[in-house]
Design a protein around this nucleic acid. Structure first.
Ligand SMILES: [Zn+2]
Ligand SMILES: [Zn+2]
Length: 778
DNA sequence: ACCTCAGGGCCAGCC
DNA sequence: GGCTGGCCCTGAGGT
């Protein structure tokens, strides 16, 4: 990063200053206080409990001599042991396993170190063979996620929890800090001028907060205890993994206020850190627990540490009336599930609780002339682009003069500048394999000898794409790379056909329901049962390993830098939407910069795909088509994390502009209509609420590219095959870190997400706002 | 009241 | 004798 020092005189603020700008919301009576459990609010514990609801609870059968009150545990016929594939009896140690594996894990914990595999370390673990190698069996246990920490929150005795609470401070200093030097400052006073404005952390900030040694200043005059700091959820929720299936009725109903939790992420932080040393709610994968944002996160983060736990949960009523995301207001109604629920029957789950901070967005927007329009952007009354499009209404945009961006998009001149960095934003994942608690690092256990690069990476395709991955954050080094774009700049010359509706929906066996839109009832595919096949399991494991590595190589480094960069921006108080803009900024520069970024997206995705087994069989020409037609989709997947709370936190380095330029929504509006931007924000919300890991995001990106329905493909079958494989890998990734039910829910969420992305993409290409490239924003 | 699940115990079966 | 795994029981915590 060569941003150098970015001292910003006027944007720095003293703690005292900042104090006045913390969001002041009335706090619920400590719903998460005292270690995170208590009261009748849905604490993390409650949520955690809900997370482990298992499909068919054991039938209650009374047998002869047995005590009538005791239910007999029947194996779940619809669930298999994740370790040995025999019938599962429920969720044990965080994973659906059989009694045998449960017992084995229980017995193994004290002696896990002593197991040794004599067969190479990749023994097959089946019901029949599971006793042949304890080492591999135990490794499998770890791999699938069995963990002491993964036990349900509810199982932790109170006393222990309290004790654990006291150890927090110790624990926090032992984490793997990747951003040690980072110091987070409070936001600029100028941008949060109203007391009801939540303090927005920049995307990814929370993960990087982790290391701050300094206790952030908690100002004595920080207003009222009822203060919460709202953070964008996209990253800080990376660990907040398992959206529990909700057995409750809608918490979004008007009467659902009491269930509403404003800062679930915060409260989960608090829970997590307080329990790190002992037990962790099962819903947190141990991966997440030990990845860098968690260790020591909450107490060192200014956003969290300075907020007393009592404050971490706000009363719902405070925001209830402001919530723009009531299901009926959603741009994209949730797709119905396989239970046949229609949209109107949509039952929000705890994952929607996680969205709570997003609900604050309408409150959180700083009031300024620039952003004032945003307040209506997500308001329920604002017609969505989605619905507009159904009625054939084009996006209105800012009504600027025409010049340049016509309907027929020729990227040679003007790919509608989305904004963007080509970076996958980092820390969402931060599942650092380096963290090595034996009970938490399991899914990346190297023991996984089977997960060898079976020929991966050796496939050297000869595209014209540079295989070198630029490690610098794209937007940090403008003009640093012009090469590497495929075959004579086809992407900016791409002929985008808005009618080209790839079937993004065949996440399972079915295909898109087409123009009917998400309102339509659509069948969702059956749950992932494919893993009963051990061979397939291993194949997917291998695939994931490979994808992980490829993602790390291609995206990781620049992602980290992006985060670091964002953090610095935040430090400098530059991530405020209405911060003054350098006078050298022009729309033209922005556009060019964006075009350049798109080139990098293309380059990176090709490098990434190139390492995925099976990609090499695709025809070159097909690859060109695929990538060319999915630039927007890739961009969205990659940058959603930067679109938070209805604002863009994308930074661009523009030529002739010495400081990074914050490409806010306001600037986006030069290129995109307001409804389009709203739609993108909405989509970003949805994606962020999925809390995909770094690796999963990369897979999703690849899936999005590999649409067999793109016009002009010579060999769509191979494309579809590879896509399907990646979909399975993604599902597998979910299964690896989530309980079965949560994985299934995640699968459906992603399914829905892909559908919406397809729709969004279509809208994008039909709602491009003409722009006067010479006009300076006023 | 009833459910889930960890943990512990029991014990037949197996090596 | 040690391990396995199916089963039982209890208690903590949840709905
Ligand atoms: Zn098993
Ligand atoms: Zn083995």
């Amino acid at each position: 990063m060569q941003m150098g020092s970015l001292e910003s005189e006027h944007n720095r603020m003293t703690p005292e200053q900042s104090a006045g700008h913390w969001i002041a919301l009335s706090s619920a009576a400590s719903a998460v206080g005292g270690g995170g459990v208590g009261g009748d609010s849905p604490s993390a514990a409650a949520v955690a409990a809900a997370a482990v609801v298992v499909p068919d609870s054991p039938m209650k059968v009374h047998l002869d001599g047995r005590r009538a009150s005791q239910p007999i545990k029947f194996p779940f016929t619809d669930s298999l042991c994740r370790v040995c594939r025999s019938l599962s009896t429920g969720v044990h140690y965080g994973v659906s396993t059989c009694e045998g594996c449960k017992g084995f894990f229980k017995r193994s914990i004290p002696k896990c170190q002593h197991y040794k595999c004599y067969f190479g370390g990749d023994c097959e673990i089946t019901k029949e063979s599971r006793n042949r190698c304890k080492s591999c069996r135990f490794q499998r246990c770890l791999q699938v996620g069995m963990a002491l920490e993964a036990v349900k929150m509810g199982r932790i005795p109170k006393g222990e929890r309290e004790r654990a609470q006291k150890t927090t401070d110790i624990v926090q200093n032992s984490g793997c800090h990747r951003m040690k030097s980072l110091k987070i400052l409070a936001p600029s006073p100028s941008s949060y001028a109203i007391s009801t404005t939540p303090t927005l952390c920049p995307p990814s900030m929370n993960s990087t907060f982790a290391a701050s040694e300094q206790q952030p200043s908690r100002s004595p005059d920080r207003p009222h205890s009822g203060t919460a700091l709202i953070s964008p959820p996209s990253y800080n929720d990376a660990f907040y993994q398992s959206p529990p299936p909700s057995s409750s009725s809608s918490s979004f109903s008007s009467s659902g206020a009491k269930r509403m939790k404003i800062a679930p992420t915060l409260d989960s932080f608090s829970d997590r850190t307080s329990l790190l040393s002992t037990d962790i709610p099962r819903r947190y994968s141990a991966d997440a627990v030990n990845s860098f944002p968690f260790r020591g996160l909450s107490k060192t983060s200014p956003s969290l540490s300075s907020v007393p736990e009592d404050d971490l949960c706000c009363t719902a009523t405070t925001i209830d009336s402001h919530r723009p995301h009531h299901p009926s207001h959603r741009l994209f109604p949730p797709r119905s599930s396989n239970s046949g629920r229609r949209h109107s029957d949509f039952i929000p789950t705890a994952s929607h609780h996680q969205r709570a901070p997003l609900f604050m967005s309408s409150l959180s927007m700083p009031v300024s002339s620039r952003t004032a329009h945003l307040s209506t952007g997500s308001s329920p009354s604002t017609p969505s682009l989605y619905s507009n499009s159904l009625r054939g209404v084009a996006g209105g945009g800012r009504g600027q003069d025409v010049d340049g961006f016509g309907r027929s998009v020729s990227l040679n001149d003007a790919f509608p500048p989305l904004l963007l960095s080509s970076n996958t934003v980092a820390s969402r994942d931060t599942f650092s394999p380096a963290c090595s608690s034996v009970f938490s690092d399991r899914s990346r256990q190297p023991n996984n000898c089977s997960a060898r690069d079976s020929g991966v990476g050796s496939s050297s395709r000869s595209t014209s794409v540079t295989t070198t991955v630029c490690s610098d954050g794209d937007f940090l080094t403008p003009g640093s790379r012009d090469g590497g774009i495929v075959t004579g700049d086809p992407f900016f010359g791409g002929d985008f056909d808005a009618t080209d509706s790839g079937s993004w929906l065949d996440f399972g066996n079915e295909t898109s329901d087409g123009p009917g839109g998400p309102e339509e009832n659509c069948t969702v595919q059956p749950p992932i049962e494919t893993l009963a096949d051990t061979g397939k399991w291993d194949m997917l494991e291998n695939m994931l390993e490979t994808i992980d590595r490829a993602g790390n190589d291609v995206y990781r480094e620049e992602s980290s830098e992006a985060v670091e960069f964002m953090v610095r921006m935040w430090q400098e108080g530059r991530l405020t939407p209405d911060a003054p803009t350098d006078s050298n900024v022009t729309v033209l520069k922005i556009r060019d910069r964006i075009k350049e970024s798109l080139g990098n997206i293309v380059k990176n995705i090709l490098t990434f795909l190139d390492r995925i087994p099976g990609f090499s069989v695709l025809r070159k020409s097909d690859v060109s088509i695929l990538v060319e037609k999915s630039i927007f989709d890739m961009w969205m997947v990659q940058n959603s994390a930067f679109l938070v709370n209805n604002e863009s936190y994308i930074m661009l380095q523009l030529p002739g502009v010495d400081r990074p330029f914050h490409y806010t929504r306001f600037w986006m509006a030069n290129f995109l209509s307001e409804p389009m931007i709203n739609a993108m924000m909405e989509f970003a919300d949805e994606q962020n609420s999925c809390h995909l890991t770094f690796s999963e995001t990369n897979i999703l990106k690849a899936i999005v590219v590999l649409s067999p329905d793109r016009q002009g493909l010579e060999d769509p079958t191979s494309v579809g095959k590879l896509r399907r494989t990646l979909q399975e890998a993604l599902e597998h990734a979910f299964l690896r870190r989530l309980p079965t039910s949560a994985a299934e829910e995640m699968r459906q969420k992603v399914h829905s997400l892909m559908f919406h992305l397809e729709r969004l993409s279509q809208l994008y290409f039909t709602h491009i706002t003409p722009v006067d490239m010479n006009k300076e924003p006023g």
